[in-house]
């Protein structure tokens, strides 16, 4: 027979593990939360409008050196899959944690970024950073046509391979 202390410990562990699981929303297989933010031209944009496409959500900022280094790779990928972009199968959504509009715009121009760029210019205080459990940059999430999370935080070759594989399946 389980004594009372062990019983309480088991109950505590069950409740506690449930609590931890409930904390993580950005996991593979879960729905990506909605993001509504402003584009550089001032118009509003919602992630849900990309339903039906494979989407790479790239969290970055111009003050984050490794993020900036990654932009040419994203640019190359966007060009490689320009047909899929045209056919509404693939999109990149850049979510910037910048706080300075000018720096953000400058980087968009410098790297000739032609995929969707949004920001609330709130730096780490952006509610989206919290919603997506972003702890450090760069960070990304890949979602499928239904908005379900397929992968997170893939970079370099791994990212390229994953996008290639996922677009083939579509």
């Amino acid at each position: 027979m389980i004594n009372m202390k062990t019983g309480f410990t088991i109950i505590f562990l069950i409740v506690f593990s449930g609590f931890i699981a409930a904390q993580n929303k950005i996991e593979i297989g879960k729905k990506a939360p909605e993001i509504i933010m402003t584009k550089a031209d001032g118009t509003s944009f919602s992630l849900s409008t990309l339903k039906g496409k494979l989407v790479l959500i790239d969290f970055w900022a111009t003050w984050c050196a490794p993020c900036v280094e990654e932009q040419p790779q994203l640019k190359a990928m966007y060009e490689t899959y320009s047909e899929q972009v045209k056919n509404n199968q693939f999109e990149i959504l850049g979510v910037s944690l910048d706080k300075n509009k000018e720096s953000w715009q400058k980087a968009i121009d410098r790297f000739n970024i032609n995929w969707i760029q949004i920001s609330d210019l709130k730096f780490w205080k952006s509610p989206v950073a919290k919603l997506y459990e972003v702890d450090e940059l760069p960070f990304n999430v890949i979602i499928d046509v239904e908005g379900t999370i397929l992968a997170k935080n893939l970079h370099g070759k791994e990212l390229e391979e994953f996008i290639k594989k996922s677009l083939k399946q579509n």
């Binding site: 003050w63 984050c64 050196a65 490794p66 450090e136 940059l137």
Partner: peptide, 9 residues
Amino acid sequence: GCCPFVKCP
């Protein structure tokens, strides 16, 4: 505080 020391420019 942008990123870990090794990556900070």
